[in-house]
């Protein structure tokens, strides 16, 4: 794999809050055009890894390169879907308005969003099945619909890399399918999608690659290489080895070859 098709390259990343390390000496490479899950137990530093990649948290050490250059020069290439709970949904604004915020980086200072931005935002709402809710005040949307508005906003950013923080958290089945379709479409267009994910069971079905994280990087690579009993035990401890064996029967060595993702 040469340097050119690495969407994100993280080296020696360490982050500590009040001297307690949350991420310790993490090296990661995300090749372009893949759908990657970041998994690990609670407190493993998954969200921190995502925020550090976006430059929202200053690292204690280490660096993040986006297509070989520092993040600061490449911000426009990185789209972001924060956790739904990170904002006040009673803010007086509409779904369409939130999606148009995805265009603010392209617009630059002093320019107001106009018809072009409105059209792009409507298109983005359309692709997550939310076109009928454009004018709706955002607190009047269900949790899944709010999540899709956030996804549409990221789509409107028209980025090359998408970072998503638990997009499947607490959403309905329709939204889950819409998110999955959107992620696959982005991947098929050659974009890089990196998702913090909490449901181990769906990882082999949904993702090409996985990063197992517990403060340190345990493993990263294609899902079938990462999801071994040894790696899962290293990340989750004995508790989840049992869970892993029960919940992920398809990861038993003998049945592994039958996984649908293997075919890729």
């Amino acid at each position: 794999m040469n340097q050119a098709n690495l969407a994100i390259e993280i080296t020696d990343l360490t982050i500590a809050y009040k001297e307690k390390p949350v991420l310790w000496d993490v090296d990661l490479e995300f090749p372009e055009g893949n759908l990657t899950a970041i998994v690990g137990p609670n407190g493993a530093g998954k969200t921190t890894l995502l925020k550090a990649t976006l430059g929202l948290i200053p690292p204690s050490a280490g660096q993040v390169l986006v297509f070989g250059k520092p993040l600061r020069q490449q911000r426009r290439l990185v789209g972001y879907v924060p956790q739904r709970g990170s904002v006040d949904w009673d803010f007086p604004t509409s779904a369409l308005d939130v999606v148009m915020m995805g265009r603010y980086g392209h617009l630059g200072w002093l320019r107001r969003p106009g018809k072009a931005e409105r059209d792009l935002a409507m298109q983005a709402l359309h692709s997550v099945g939310m076109q009928d809710f454009a004018g709706r005040q955002i607190s009047q949307l269900s949790g899944g619909q709010q999540q899709r508005v956030f996804l549409a906003r990221a789509l409107a950013q028209d980025a090359a890399i998408y970072l998503m923080d638990e997009p499947f958290q607490g959403v309905d089945a329709v939204t889950e399918r819409a998110i999955l379709e959107m992620m696959r479409r982005l991947r098929d267009e050659g974009k890089t999608v990196i998702v913090v994910h909490h449901d181990l069971q769906s990882v082999p079905e949904y993702f090409d690659r996985a990063v197992l994280l517990n403060v340190r990087k345990i493993a990263s690579g294609p899902v079938h290489e990462v999801f071994t009993d040894d790696n899962l035990r290293a990340a989750y401890g004995d508790r989840v080895t049992r869970l892993g064996a029960a919940a992920l029967p398809q990861l038993e060595p003998e049945s592994r070859a039958g996984l649908p993702v293997m075919g890729k």
Binding site: R72, R75, M101, G105, R153
Partner: peptide
């Protein structure tokens, strides 16, 4: 009025605003 959209975004979602480079 001049910084309307920036103030709006910073008030609604400061993390996303940081991600955009504001």
């Amino acid at each position: 009025a001049l910084l309307w959209k920036e103030f709006k975004l910073v008030s609604f979602d400061p993390e996303f605003a940081t991600g955009l480079g504001l």
